[in-house]
Simulated assay, not measured.
Amino acid sequence: MLPLYPEIKPYARHQLAVDEPHVLYVDESGSPDGIPVLFVHGGPGGGCDGNSRRFYDPEKYRIITFDQRGAGRSTPHAELSLNTTQHLIADIEAIREFLAIDQWMLFGGSWGSTLSLLYAQAYPQRVLALVLRGIFLCRPQELQWFYQSGAHHVFPDYWKDYIRPIAADKRDDFISAYYELLTGSNEIKRMEAAKAWSVWEGRCSTLRPNPDLAESFGEPHKALAMARIEAHYFVNHAFIENNQILDNVDKLAGIPGIIVHGRYDMVCPLDSAVALYDAWEDSELHIIRDAGHSASEPSIADALVRATEDMAVRLRPEDNP
C-alpha cells in the first residue's frame, strides 16, 4: 500500500483579492515546472492543510492549494456574502490566470469533486484531467440522505447528538433549522450548532471509528466555517440545478478522469459515483472495498496516490519512460 508523500512546505504563498471583502489564500509547492494540479477541498468550508500537498510526487507536480471563500486562511472567516458556487468557479479561474497556467489537473474530494466537475464543465478547455474522491453530485436526494433521513439508520447514536440543538418542532427540515441557528445572533447557540453539524460529518466519514478525525471537525474555527458555509449552500440547493452535473456530462468529453470511492461511504453514497461513471465515457471508477468517505483512510489514500501517479504517466509520458 502506497503512503502519502512526505510533508513539504510551499515555495510560494499568495493572498489573492477577489470580490470584496474576500481574499483567497493560495500556495504552491512541488516542482514549478511540474504538471499543474489544483487541490479542491471539501465542505464547502473545509479548507486545506499540510496533507493536501501529499497526494502527488513533488518532482512531477506543481501543487496548488487554496482555501475557498470563508474557509481556512481565506478572509473574512466564515463569510457568506458573495459566496456561491458561481463565485467559487470564478475564483478557480482567477487563480489559474493569476498563476499563468494554461491547463491543469483538478483533484477534489466530496464537495471538492462537485466543484471540480462544475469548473470542468464551465472551462473544459482548461482541464487536463480530473482525480475525484467521494463523489457528491449535490442533488436533493444526497442532501436528504445525510442531513434528514438515511444515514441516521446507520449511525443512530451519533444522530442523537446531531439533532440535539434543533427544537422538536423544526426537525422536519434540519438544514433550514441549522441555517437559522448558524446565522443567528446568539453566539452560544451558533457555536453549539456548528460543532454538532460538523462533528456529525466527521464521525460518519470513516469505516473504522476515528476519534481524532471527529475531534478535528469539532475544532471551533473549522467547525464554524464548515457548518455555516455548508448550511448556506445546502439551503440554497448549492446554487445549481437539481441534476446539473449529470445533465451536462457531455461537456466532460475528452477529459480523462479517475474516480475513487469507498464502498461504505455513508456521507456520499456510492450510487452517485456509479451514476457519474456510467455517464462519463472518459472516466474509470475504483471502488475501495474497505473504506468510507475520508481521504485519510489508508485504502483511499493509496488509491489517490496511485491515481496521481497514473495521471503523471498519461499527461507527460516523456518524463515516465
Rank of each mutant, 00 (worst) to 15 (best):
S198Y: 10
S198P: 01
S198V: 11
S198L: 04
S198R: 07
W200H: 05
W200V: 12
W200K: 00
E201A: 13
R203M: 13
R203Q: 15
C204M: 10
S205K: 04
S205P: 10
S205A: 15
L207S: 06
R208N: 15
P209A: 15
P209N: 14
N210H: 13
N210Q: 14
P211E: 12
P211Y: 14
P211V: 11
L213I: 15
A214D: 12
E215G: 08
E215N: 14
S216Y: 04
S216K: 05
G218E: 09
G218H: 06
E219I: 07
E219N: 08
E219S: 04
H221I: 09
H221A: 13
H221W: 09
K222Q: 06
K222F: 05
K222T: 14
K222Y: 02
K222V: 07
A223N: 03
L224I: 03
L224H: 09
A225K: 01
M226E: 06
M226H: 00
A227P: 04
I229S: 03
I229Q: 00
I229K: 00
E230F: 06
Y233T: 10
Y233D: 02
F234A: 04
V235S: 13
H237C: 00
H237N: 12
H237M: 09
H237F: 03
I240F: 01
E241K: 12
E241M: 05
